[in-house]
């Protein structure tokens, strides 16, 4: 068992446990903190995969910005301990678990058959696998994917305006 395997098992276990903790804790704050743990573990996995840029963004954007937003909202709304599941939760719990297991089974089945895909298999077998650098990503992003890249800026702008409108309207009504 080499270092990568050990690290994979470590990060994988942490992220899975974190994920289960997210859906298990009663208090949203704990859930949020568990999610941060998961995100960090995933950043580790990204590093393991040689995707250093993505790992960095994961930490900065997800674990940093987005989760801060979550925590901020939770504290703003001052939500206390909540029951894990409501009326429907109870009714649906069995069905949800069964569906989840089926879903996971299917996912795993796909994952294991992914390498039967000739394109993936051939790429791996030729050994062209080279750790991609931030330089590669940047080149793709500003050449081939320039238009989608610009569109994301529009999405962010729309989100910005949307948030302002949502909040501002509430303010006016209160006045």
């Amino acid at each position: 068992m080499n270092a990568e395997q050990i690290l994979f098992i470590l990060f994988g276990a942490v992220s899975l446990i974190g994920a289960i903790a997210v859906i298990s804790f009663r208090h949203p704050i704990y859930s949020a903190l568990s999610l941060i743990v998961t995100f960090f573990a995933q950043a580790g996995l990204f590093v393991l995969l040689g995707a250093h840029f993505v790992a960095a963004v994961q930490v900065i954007v997800y674990a940093g910005a987005i989760m801060v937003l979550f925590l901020f909202v939770i504290m703003l709304l001052n939500l206390g301990t909540l029951s894990v599941q409501g009326a429907i939760g109870r009714k649906l719990k069995g069905l949800a678990i069964i569906l989840g297991i089926l879903f996971a089974a299917e996912g795993i089945y796909i994952a294991m058959n992914a390498l039967n895909d000739t394109a993936v298999a051939s790429a791996e077998s030729t050994g062209a696998t080279i750790t991609t650098t931030t330089y590669d990503i940047g080149e793709l992003l500003f050449s081939k994917y320039l238009l989608p890249f610009e569109v994301t800026s529009l999405i962010l702008l729309a989100a910005l305006i949307g948030v302002i409108v949502l909040v501002k309207r509430e303010g006016q009504e209160e006045n």
Binding site: L16, G89, A114
Partner: peptide, 20 residues
């Protein structure tokens, strides 16, 4: 990695289904 991904995804799905 893909199996781990599937498990994480399923966890998320179950969470959406059972939490209120």
């Amino acid at each position: 990695y893909l199996i781990l991904s599937a498990l994480l995804f399923t966890t998320g799905v179950i969470g959406v289904l059972i939490r209120r």
